[in-house]
Amino acid sequence: MKNLATKSGFNWLKYASPKTFYPLAGKLIPWCAISAATLIAYGLYIGLLVAPTDFQQGEGYRIIFVHVPAAWFSMFLYLLMALYAGMGLVFNAKLSYLMATAIAPTGAMFTLLALVTGSLWGKPMWGAWWVWDARLTSELILLFLYIGYISLQAAIDDKTRADKASAVLALVGAINVPIIFFSVKWWNTLHQGSSISLTKAPAMAAIMLQGMLIMAIGFWLYSIAVILMRVRCEILERDSKTAMFRQD
């Protein structure tokens, strides 16, 4: 490991220790936060003020400007969490575990938002607050997986064990996610009669797609800022000696 780091000329492993990562994260947070706020504001401007109406769904379609990015990040953050958990187990790196722990609440929050905004979209479009649509159902199960991870982490008092055990759970969950999503889709087609499914997404105008992507990047930067803030809290809570090295 050491060899690899020195050969590459840049000692990236230096930042894998919580002690050095703490000030680096502190420097990154304001930049991420400011660009997140700017991009989200711009995305809102496009989504609410500039983008034309959708001829099929009317103005109700505008919900997708928050719903779709939230749904994307609910899934992406779960995979990222599992990736950090796996890295933690392989390299026995404390910072990786801390990152996985810090990602979970934000991922769960986006999952919840995707569910609620999806239901707010579904009420006028489908005529019901909840429809057992394959995507909504998958999102609900994803929320359960997040809840499992967070509960296990909270239930174990020994932090080292909590990190490792929940990392194993995150990996098991990540292997299961594709299988679960596939099974839900299969279930949905078996019971065609009992559910309505939005089979084809409405054709999107370029400006709509642009607004959605900008919102997504804004959400991404927001996630980074919030996750780094949470990692810093975790570092201090677990090892307050590190605080001696802190530079605000």
Partner: peptide, 25 residues
């Protein structure tokens, strides 16, 4: 703008809730 073509409650509800939850976090 506020009426959102009759979808006001749903559109503003979604946007409001999203940013309220993010602010609370």
């Amino acid at each position: 703008f506020l009426a959102m073509g009759g979808y006001g409650f749903y559109v503003w509800g979604s946007f409001g809730l999203t940013f309220a939850v993010m602010t609370i976090e």
